[in-house]
């Protein structure tokens, strides 16, 4: 793990959010079921990341950051659990979470901006992952706040193309996770 980037964990996103780690069956249409549920119940998704689960090809893990203002957690839990393909839900409060996301950005470069750009990349602990005569692509795996900070810094460069993955999270070691609710 690389050292914490500048602005690291200090600045929190202004949205009151909550992180749900949802283990689902890896079947066609399951993401649509989860996303559709959020849409029709009026719960706002702040970010969402999906990947095959660690242990088993039968399952996938969806990490959903929800806007807690629009989505009373108990309701989100209860409604999500009613989806037959949802196997387990853990809920991680932002303060108890180790959160990371990946940012990829391609920035046009020339002699005028190269130095300042390298400063920003260095300060953010980002890495250069691709380069040609006129562009550089940088990558940062960091906290959402760290990615926010780099994004703001890069916005100064015209023509930047930037992608973020949405965050994944695990509980901080030593913090008990909430008991997964098992009901419908």
């Amino acid at each position: 793990m690389s050292p914490e980037p500048f602005l690291g964990d200090v600045e929190h996103s202004p949205v009151r959010h909550h992180i749900l780690s949802v283990l689902v069956e890896n079947k066609a249409g399951v993401l649509a079921r989860v996303a559709g549920l959020f849409a029709r119940r009026g719960f706002n998704i702040y970010s969402l990341a999906v990947a095959p689960a660690e242990s088993h090809e039968r399952f996938s893990r969806i990490t959903i950051v929800v806007d807690a203002e629009t989505a009373p957690l108990e309701q989100v839990f209860g409604q999500l659990h009613k989806l037959v393909n949802v196997v387990e839900i853990s809920d991680i409060a932002p303060d108890d979470a180790v959160e990371r996301e990946v940012l990829l950005a391609t920035i046009p470069t020339d002699v005028d901006n190269r130095t300042s750009l390298l400063d920003v990349i260095g300060a953010a602990n980002a890495s250069i992952v691709d380069v040609d005569a006129h562009h550089v692509t940088v990558m940062l795996a960091a906290t959402p706040a760290g990615c926010d900070a780099l994004e703001r810094a890069l916005e100064a460069h015209p023509g930047v193309e930037l992608h973020r993955t949405g965050r994944v999270a695990v509980p901080r070691l030593g913090v008990p996770t909430h008991e997964p609710m098992r009901s419908r």
């Binding site: 009373p72 108990e74 309701q75 839990f77 209860g78 409604q79 659990h81 009613k82 609710m181 009901s183 419908r184």
Partner: peptide, 8 residues
Amino acid sequence: IDAAEINK
């Protein structure tokens, strides 16, 4: 029987 109805 539906936990989502409680406190809805």
